[in-house]
Amino acid sequence: MARADHDRRPPARPGAARRDRRERFRPRRRARDRPGVTCAVLGTGVMGSDIALSLALGGEEVRVWGRRAAGLEESRARARRNAAFLVVEGLERDESALERITWTTERARALEDVVFACEAVSEELALKHELLGSAEEELGAGAVLVSTTSALSPTRLAEPLTRPERFVVTHYAQPAHLVALVEVVPGERTSPETVAEASSLLERTGKRPAVCADMPGFLWSRLQQAVLRELVHLVARGDVTPETCDTVVKYGYASRLPAMGPFEHADLAGLELMGNQAREIWPDLATAQGPDDGPIGELRARGWTGMAAGRGFYDWRVRDPDAFRLERDREIVRRLKITRGGEVVLKGPEA
């Protein structure tokens, strides 16, 4: 009967369907009967700022700590820009998440009564050791202490800690406020309860936690480096250009990855076919054990270390880095909208 009643509803007014789609683009609101827990983010760089916004968007109260007032102001400005971008793109109704973030240079204040503290400073083991050890002393015994790192072992990171069972890596990927996946990587002494608590908080804030083993690069960075090693190898042989590689990845291989992963594709294609392909291709794949032999080493030797230096594989004095980042974020947003029930509009040449 309910289905029949639904079928008899009058046609929607023009524009109503479009408004409905916009509603589905927005994240689910935090239940008002669940107060946000208090989190701390230690670090005011790109990752720390974006993680803080991600937590606030998920309804948590966040304190951001930094050593310098100037760094805090830069972090605040980045959070404001990103929050405004989300509103413009239709993913948020307003910028109210910013009201749940405070910035401070007082670490003890930042860590007072928090249940989740995320270290987000640069990828230097000694620096992380110093900050994690100091933070643990100021945290309550029940708090979960995490580090966002793309490659450093959680077992090694936990070496200076007296409560390593309450420590786990949560590897956010850039841009952290847009990318859903977060790798959760326990160390040798991390407790199952800590993994569960960290994963639960990530899920509450709209993330998709994936528990990975403590191995170099975890899973995300290993995949990224495996692809990069192979493509650099082909560029060095003169078989392809960086432009061709990026085109094939972005508009070919990556375009179907949201629909099926590598193992699903292998089963779909059939392991006989995949095995035959592997026999032809695997012997020719790159086996380099270091990045310095080949194009990456040559570029580094010339000081062309990437976008920040003005040149890398591309000449970023010609290409606009800010425009590139903006288009990257817009493309991620487009895909987020699709996963939240939106539609793809293919524009023809006259659109």
Score class of each variant (00 low, 15 high):
1 M>N: 14
8 R>A: 15
8 R>T: 15
17 A>V: 07
21 R>N: 04
22 R>W: 09
23 E>V: 09
23 E>Q: 10
24 R>N: 12
31 A>W: 03
31 A>Y: 02
32 R>V: 12
34 R>A: 15
35 P>N: 04
36 G>D: 01
36 G>Y: 00
38 T>L: 08
40 A>P: 01
41 V>I: 07
47 M>A: 11
60 E>H: 12
69 A>M: 05
70 A>W: 00
74 E>R: 09
77 A>K: 01
84 A>D: 09
93 R>C: 11
97 A>P: 01
102 T>H: 08
104 T>N: 11
105 T>S: 15
108 A>H: 06
110 A>L: 02
121 V>M: 04
122 S>K: 02
126 A>N: 06
129 H>P: 11
139 L>T: 14
141 A>V: 09
142 G>L: 02
147 S>R: 01
152 L>G: 13
153 S>W: 01
155 T>L: 02
159 E>R: 10
163 R>S: 14
164 P>D: 06
167 F>H: 11
167 F>V: 08
169 V>L: 05
171 H>K: 03
175 P>W: 00
180 A>F: 00
183 E>T: 05
186 P>A: 11
187 G>W: 00
189 R>H: 14
189 R>G: 10
193 E>L: 08
198 A>W: 03
204 R>A: 14
214 D>F: 09
215 M>Q: 15
220 W>G: 15
223 L>P: 03
237 R>W: 06
242 P>H: 10
249 V>E: 04
253 Y>F: 15
259 A>F: 07
267 D>A: 14
279 R>M: 11
279 R>A: 15
279 R>C: 13
288 A>K: 03
293 D>G: 14
293 D>W: 04
294 G>K: 03
299 L>Y: 05
315 D>K: 08
323 A>L: 05
326 L>G: 11
329 D>Q: 06
336 L>W: 03
339 T>R: 10
347 K>A: 15
349 P>R: 12
350 E>K: 07
